[in-house]
Structures are given as C-alpha cells and as structure tokens.
Amino acid sequence: MSDTIARTMWERFEPVHQLVYFAPEVRETADGLGMRGYWMGYFALRAAPLGPAPAAVVTGCFHVFHPDRVARALPDAWQLASPQQVLQARERAVDAAMTSLYGPDVVASADLAEAADLAWRAALAADTAGRVLSAANQALPRPAQPHVRLWQAVTTLREHRGDGHVAVLVSRRLGPVAAMVLKSAAGETDAEFQRRTRQWGSGPWRAAQEELGERGWLDAQGRLTAAGAAAREQIEADTDAAAAAPWTALGPDATARLARLLEPLARTVLDSGIVPDANPVGLTDGTWGPPGRPGAADRSPVRVTRDE
C-alpha cells in the first residue's frame, strides 16, 4: 500500500485525537482531578498509559519539550491522581467532548460504531516494537462506548506515527529544538508558539538555527534552502513509510471506508475553532477547504498560555 495512504489517514484521524488537547470539557476534567494548569493536565493525560513515569522518561518519549517544562508537572501529577484515575477521567472527558461537539445522534450512529471498529483493528495491527507511547496506548482495554473506542484507537495510531517520526529525527541527528526550527521554517507551524509552549529559550533556538545553517538547510534569514526543503520532504516521506503498517494490515477497502467515515468527524473539529491555527503539529484547514460549520463560534477552545 502506498505510503501516501498513511498521510491521508493521519489527516483524517489527527483532528479527532486533538480534542484531548483543546476541548474545554477535557480541561474541566483535568481541573477536577486537581491538576494545576493546562500543562500539568496535558502531561498527565497523555503520559498516563505509561504508568507513573518520571519526568525524564516522559521528556524522552515526547521529544520536543524542555525538561523543565515536564518537571513542573511530573511526578507531582501522580500525587494528585494515579495514572489509572487519570485514564478513567480521560475517557469521561473524551465522552463529554465528543458528545458535545458531534451531538448525541452522531456518537450513537452506526457509522461512528463502524469507524470505531475499523480504527480499532488498525490500531491493534500497529507494529509497536521500539515505540513506547503507541505500545502503552495499544495495551489499554477496549472502551465500551464506540466513540470513546474510536478516540482511543486513533490515539494509538497517532502515537504510533509520532514514535516513528521521532525515530526518523533521531536517525538524522535532529534534536528537539532543531526539529522544531526545521518544521517552523517549512511554514508548518508558528516558530514563536513552538518555542514558547515547549519552553525553550532564544539561545537554544538560535543555536539550532545555526546548526541547520551549517548543514546548508537554512539560509542567513532562517529560510529553508533547497537542500533543507529536500531534507524536510524526506523526513516526512520516511515518517509516512514508518506509519504504513496498520493500513497495510487493514487493507485498501477497509482503509478507504474508514477514511470516508472519519472525514466528516475531522471536518467538524476543524470547523469548530477548537484547534488553534498555530497548533504545534501543523494541523490546518488547508486539506479540507473553507470552514463553515454552523454554530462553530459557540464553543470556547482551550487557550494555552506561557505561565500555566
């Protein structure tokens, strides 16, 4: 199966996964556990499948965060709620967020249940050797509610892709800051948003720019050179190739069916305004055309600030 299928599927499932970072219901649930600020909730909710992992382990798995950013949240979060309690709360939050955004008729629909079962099959087929975050998510029990099951399946697939991407970056000797500089220079996300939210200072950012300049990947103005654009394109191609196994296992017909079922769900997330334009994964409306879901402005997305 073509590696481009892996990218197509990522574009369909990533917006559904992103609800856990930006839906107000998720922030409310994290606050209810006693998590102090957005970032403690973020690290606890995402890292909970690993068990009570210390900050150093989570920093290594997540790749792009300054160690101090993680250490402000972990292991303190595990004193407020155990990983098992966090996982249970995560399911409740996803249930509430998806029901609020999609409506009860959609979450109870046959199409969503079909999508959940197809995505679960793909997630179980993900090759997780050497992929810690995806393996931890893959090992979680199958949720009873189809919409929560769909979210957990696409989260396993998302972390599977992310683990593979980190491996590609490491193979090219691209550290956390250099990887973000390259992504930002490619126009896929906002540099200041990346630097600030991942809590890297201007010094490491300049050093990474200089490093990429010495490689010939950035020019004096910090823009991608032809060599840098080619390197970035190859990194993405290798990431797609590393993410292809679940779709090969699912097969072309079932994969195409899942893509069709996911498309309106992804479109609804993007139209809602929940995911900010400057989001760190570079997720945009570009693939999907102009937004326009009625009532999208009625929901208030979570805002990520420097000090939380």
Results as ranks from 00 to 15, higher is better:
residue 211 E to S: 00
residue 57 V to T: 15
residue 188 E to Q: 14
residue 20 V to A: 09
residue 273 G to H: 02
residue 36 R to I: 14
residue 250 L to A: 05
residue 110 A to Y: 08
residue 281 V to G: 08
residue 232 R to I: 12
residue 76 D to P: 09
residue 77 A to V: 02
residue 53 A to N: 06
residue 28 E to Q: 12
residue 82 S to N: 14
residue 205 W to P: 00
residue 37 G to R: 03
residue 286 G to W: 14
residue 196 R to A: 15
residue 197 T to G: 15
residue 45 L to P: 06
residue 163 D to I: 04
residue 40 M to W: 03
residue 156 T to N: 09
residue 263 E to G: 10
residue 4 T to R: 06
residue 70 V to P: 01
residue 268 T to K: 12
residue 185 A to S: 14
residue 125 A to Y: 07
residue 25 E to K: 00
residue 145 Q to V: 15
residue 186 A to N: 15
residue 173 R to E: 02
residue 241 A to H: 05
residue 240 D to N: 08
residue 153 A to Y: 01
residue 79 Q to P: 07
residue 81 A to T: 13
residue 175 G to Y: 04
residue 44 A to P: 00
residue 278 A to P: 06
residue 291 P to S: 15
residue 199 Q to L: 13
residue 42 Y to V: 13
residue 69 R to C: 11
residue 249 A to I: 10
residue 36 R to Q: 06
residue 157 L to C: 06
residue 63 H to E: 15
residue 171 S to Q: 13
residue 284 T to N: 11
residue 176 P to I: 09
residue 292 G to K: 06
residue 204 P to Y: 00
residue 104 P to N: 03
residue 155 T to L: 10
residue 70 V to E: 01
residue 113 A to D: 02
residue 165 H to E: 09
residue 187 G to N: 11
residue 213 G to K: 01
residue 80 L to D: 12
residue 125 A to H: 05
